[in-house]
Design a protein around this nucleic acid. Structure first.
Length: 288
DNA sequence: CGGCTTTGACCCGCGC
DNA sequence: GCGCGGGTCAAAGCCG
C-alpha cells in the first residue's frame, strides 16, 4: 500500500472515530434529539421507527412499479410493505451488504435511476435538495438539473433530467449517500449483528468507503429516530458501505412519486418539471 | 427579509 | 493548442 493510502487510511479512521464518539455522546448536539425517548414523536424502539418508515414508504410504493426503475446500479430498489418490516430490514441489509461489497470492488459512488412518471405525480424524494445548476444537454430538448443536499454535512448530490427518448421518464443520477435514511433499518439490539454467523471482517479503508462515511455522517434530516449504538455496532460489523447503501436504497424508494394529491410546493413543480421542494413533508418524521 | 431558484459565466477535463 | 461539453459558482431575481 502506498504511503498516501496509508495516510488516507489513518486520516479517515481518525475522522471515523470522532464521528463514532459523537454518535455515542448523548450530549452531542447532533444526536441529542434522537435520544429523547420520552418524546411522543420519538419511539423508543427502532422497530417503531421502522414501522413508521415503512408505512411512509408504502405510501409511495403505490406509485411507479419497481419495474420502472430500469437501472439502479449496483442495486436497484425494493418494495417494502408495512406488514413485513423485519423482512424488509433483513432484505435491505442483505442488499446493502451486496451493494457494499460491490462498491468496494468498483469504488463507484454514482447510481442512476430511470423513473417513469405517473400522470401528474411528482418525482420527489421528499428530502431537502438545493438546486445549484442547470445545463442544456446536447441533442436533448430537456435540460439537466443539479441538486445538492442542503445539509452541510452531507455531500449527496443528484442530477435530474428527462429522457430524450421517453419524455415521461426521468433519469436521476445520485452521487453520494445519506446516512439518515438508513437509521430506521438499524436494529436496537447489537447482538443481532454480533451473532451473525457470516460475520464480515472489519473493512479496511478505501477512498470510496471514506466518502461513504462522510456521507453517512449526515444525520440532521431524521434525528428523532437515530439510535447511535447500533450504528456503531453496525459499522464495526459490516463497514460503512451498508450504511450508505441503505441510505441509497431509502433514497431511491421514496423518490419515485409522492402522493399525487400532495400539492406542489414550488412553481417549478407546477410546471410539470421535476423538482425537489424546498421542504420535505413526505415522511412522518420531519427534517427540522 | 431570508431562503430558494434561475441563469450566465467560469473552470476543467477530454478528444481531436 | 483549441474547442466542446459537463459541472460548479455566484449574483440577481423571485416568492412566501
Amino acid at each position: 500500500m502506498a504511503m498516501e493510502e496509508l495516510e488516507e487510511l489513518k486520516n479517515s479512521w481518525t475522522y471515523q472515530d470522532e464521528l463514532i464518539k459523537e454518535l455515542l455522546d448523548n450530549e452531542s448536539p447532533f444526536f441529542l434529539a434522537s435520544l429523547d425517548s420520552n418524546s411522543t414523536n420519538c419511539p423508543s424502539s427502532t422497530d417503531n421507527s421502522l414501522v413508521t418508515k415503512s408505512i411512509n414508504i408504502s405510501t409511495v410504493s403505490s406509485g411507479p412499479n419497481m419495474d420502472d426503475i430500469e437501472s439502479g446500479l449496483p442495486v436497484t430498489s425494493y418494495g417494502i410493505q408495512s406488514h413485513d418490516v423485519s423482512h424488509a430490514r433483513s432484505f435491505g441489509l442483505e442488499r446493502g451488504l451486496n451493494l457494499m461489497m460491490s462498491k468496494q470492488e468498483t469504488h463507484e459512488t454514482k447510481y442512476t435511476l430511470r423513473i417513469k412518471t405517473c400522470g401528474n405525480a411528482m418525482a420527489d424524494d421528499g428530502y431537502k435538495w438545493r438546486k445549484y445548476g442547470q445545463k442544456s444537454i446536447k441533442n436533448s430538448p430537456y435540460p439537466r438539473s443539479y441538486y445538492k443536499c442542503t445539509n452541510p454535512r452531507c455531500g449527496a448530490k443528484k442530477q435530474v433530467e428527462r429522457s430524450s427518448d421517453e419524455p415521461d421518464t426521468f433519469v436521476i443520477t445520485y452521487e453520494g449517500l445519506h446516512l439518515h435514511f438508513a437509521y430506521p433499518f438499524l436494529t436496537l439490539d447489537p447482538t443481532q449483528f454480533l451473532e451473525q454467523p457470516n460475520k464480515k471482517p472489519k473493512l479496511t479503508n478505501s477512498k470510496a468507503q471514506n466518502e461513504e462515511f462522510e456521507n453517512a455522517s449526515e444525520i440532521d434530516e431524521s434525528p428523532k429516530y437515530v439510535n447511535p449504538s447500533p450504528v456503531v455496532v453496525f459499522e464495526q460489523e459490516l463497514g460503512f458501505g451498508v450504511m450508505g447503501s441503505q441510505g441509497l436504497l431509502e433514497d431511491m424508494v421514496p423518490l419515485m412519486v409522492r402522493n399525487p394529491s400532495m400539492k406542489p410546493t414550488s412553481s417549478y413543480s407546477s410546471s410539470c418539471s421535476y423538482s425537489s421542494p424546498p421542504t420535505s413533508p413526505s415522511f412522518s418524521w420531519s427534517n427540522n
